[in-house]
């Protein structure tokens, strides 16, 4: 029985998270033929990439209406292929779009859908380990379905090239109806890339309720600028209106992965930690030596951030 992986393409070819989904599929069902599905016409590079990650076939859903993203149309194409291949498992990367498309496919097929898996054992029923609470908690679950639909939590497994030959390309034009295109990207707003983005910054300097006010962020901004990093904050701060939500780190904010995360006046709630687990090192600045963040931090300074942070700025300048 086949395995089908829905892959996403970005500006640099097949997305890393999709290659991770291919690796996940291969370790789940190593001896089954591995099919990939991408939307739109494609050059040979994509067939080479997915082939090098173990896929035997790259299906390309080609349709002029698919030039702009339309989740239901992509799901329709996937379902058409699912009905042809009858795979045991259908996977995608657990990105926003991956989760969205698989949810649509699950609704079309009336099948269960397990989002955010980090491990799986073949079934039936397929047994998965998946994330809850943005990764602060795990769940083991059974997927009671002939065709198991799941997404793979980003970075749960590394991509693993097999050195395989280019996948065989099979093109098809999915049958789409008008209703499949009712929700379709009509316009794209590019956000000017001013400064360092929170998600990609090498250093993030954050503050929480301990900052006390919007003005309390002045030394935080100064330190971030000195280190060429980005400013972050906790939800207590965005709820108080001191910083915009785009600065929030956590389960319902941005997930960061800097070399160093400097967390000042942040207690370390699980939902905040869910956003900074990817940090290589954490330095906490907190008045409370028993704050939970200290059990996740590598280094700590015990003290008032309003004194400690300006002192660090001054010492760097000296």
């Amino acid at each position: 029985m086949a395995v089908l992986v829905l892959v996403e393409r970005g500006p640099e070819g097949i997305e890393e998270t999709s290659l991770q989904a291919l690796a996940f599929a291969r370790s789940l069902l190593p001896s089954e033929p591995l099919h990939a599905l991408a939307v739109g016409s494609s050059e040979g590079e994509d067939a080479a990439t997915v082939g090098a990650h173990g896929a035997t076939t790259l299906h390309l859903a080609e349709h002029e209406a698919l030039d702009a993203y339309a989740p239901r149309a992509v799901a329709r194409a996937a379902v058409e292929l699912v009905e042809r291949l009858r795979p045991a498992t259908v996977l995608a990367a657990g990105t926003e779009r991956g989760n969205e498309v698989v949810a649509h496919a699950a609704a079309l097929l009336d099948l269960p859908f397990a989002a955010g898996c980090i491990a799986a054992e073949p079934g039936p029923p397929l047994r998965v380990t998946r994330v809850r609470w943005g990764g602060s908690l795990l769940e083991e679950a059974l997927v009671h379905a002939e065709i198991a639909l799941l997404t793979v939590a980003p970075h749960a497994v590394p991509a693993r090239p097999t050195g395989g030959p280019a996948a065989v390309v099979e093109r098809f034009a999915p049958a789409l109806e008008e209703s499949d295109l009712a929700v379709r990207v009509a316009q794209r707003i590019e956000v000017a890339a001013g400064g360092v983005s929170l998600a990609d910054a090498k250093v993030v300097v954050s503050a929480g309720r301990g900052a006390g006010s919007a003005e309390g962020f002045a030394p935080i901004e100064e330190l971030a600028t000195l280190l060429g990093g980005a400013v972050g904050c906790s939800r207590a701060v965005t709820m108080a209106g001191w910083r915009p939500h785009t600065d929030q780190v956590g389960q319902t904010g941005t997930k960061i992965a800097p070399e160093l995360y400097i967390a000042c006046g942040i207690s370390g709630a699980t939902q905040h930690l869910a956003g900074c687990k990817g940090a290589k090192r954490i330095l906490a600045v907190n008045t409370d030596p028993d704050a939970p963040i200290l059990s996740s931090a590598d280094y700590a300074v015990i003290g008032d951030l309003h004194e400690v942070v300006p002192a660090i700025v001054e010492a760097i300048r000296a």
């Binding site: 330095l283 906490a284 030596p289 200290l294 059990s295 931090a297 590598d298 280094y299 700590a300 300074v301 015990i302 003290g303 008032d304 004194e307 400690v308 300006p310 002192a311 660090i312 001054e314 010492a315 760097i316």
Partner: peptide, 15 residues
Amino acid sequence: AEILGHGPEAAPRVV
């Protein structure tokens, strides 16, 4: 967590 110090006196260790 390795405690680098208390208060502003910890700044040199942070640097």
